[in-house]
């Protein structure tokens, strides 16, 4: 079994239901995000377009975070999920330096690394990830990439415009986007003017040295 995710960006309407469901399900603290939706505006009036891009851990088959973690706090589950053991984490932040998708954060309450686990605790009891359930347009498609009859496998087979983020890094992500674009998926393809963030000031627990 290889669990994977696919987001059909033509269906996403940026409602943030997935982000809110993720926060509630996983008790994600303020200032931290396992899943977020970025808005990108492209063009000049009247020829404009808005892209919505849900961003979460890509659960790479060749995960840099798993490789660099000195204590195996980040590890693979048999179903392909890259899981995190909070009690094992020493808080060195190497995983944050290694992840090319900015998908890992240091939880300001537990001081341990954390990230999207595809809701591994729900999958274990046969439930879908919270973000999949909450999505009103079924933009999030989740399933077993090894099962040719799964919805995600059929989706991947039937669409030719499948993209992953930063394929050149050979991380082999198991998180796909359909009907995406460079502007949507490449963070350097868009400008970031001042004030784009929801919270302009990020507060973390006091630590020595820039965390």
């Amino acid at each position: 079994m290889r669990l994977g995710f696919l987001v059909d960006l033509s269906r996403c309407m940026g409602c943030m239901a997935c982000a809110v469901a993720c926060k509630a399900e996983n008790d994600v603290p303020l200032h931290s995000w396992r899943l977020r939706v970025k808005y990108i505006d492209q063009g000049e009036f009247p020829d404009v377009k808005r892209h919505f891009v849900p961003l979460r851990c890509n659960h790479c088959e060749n995960a840099p975070c798993e490789r660099i973690c000195p204590v195996s706090a980040l590890h693979y589950l048999p179903n392909g999920i890259v899981n995190v053991d909070h009690d094992r984490c020493i808080g060195c932040a190497s995983c944050m330096m290694a992840c090319p998708y900015n998908a890992i954060y240091l939880d300001p309450i537990t001081n341990s690394a954390d990230k999207c686990t595809y809701c591994a605790h729900r999958i274990e009891v046969g439930m879908m990830p919270a973000c999949v359930v909450a999505c009103p347009t079924h933009a999030n498609i989740f399933g077993d990439l090894d099962d040719p009859e799964s919805e995600i496998s059929k989706y991947l087979k039937n669409h030719r415009d499948v993209m992953v983020r930063k394929p050149e890094l050979n991380t082999r992500p198991k998180h796909f986007y359909v009907r995406g674009s460079t502007v949507a998926l490449d963070p350097l393809a868009s400008e970031r003017p001042e004030g784009y963030a929801i919270f302009t000031e990020v507060k973390f627990l006091d630590h020595i040295g820039g965390h």
Binding site: R36, K38, I40, Q42, G43, M97, Y105, G210
Partner: peptide, 18 residues
């Protein structure tokens, strides 16, 4: 269609290793 700007995102910590 030209130019692209991020118009909505969360704030993320910048410097991890200082």
């Amino acid at each position: 269609m030209i130019g692209a700007e991020v118009t909505f995102d969360v704030a993320l910590p910048k410097v991890i290793w200082g």
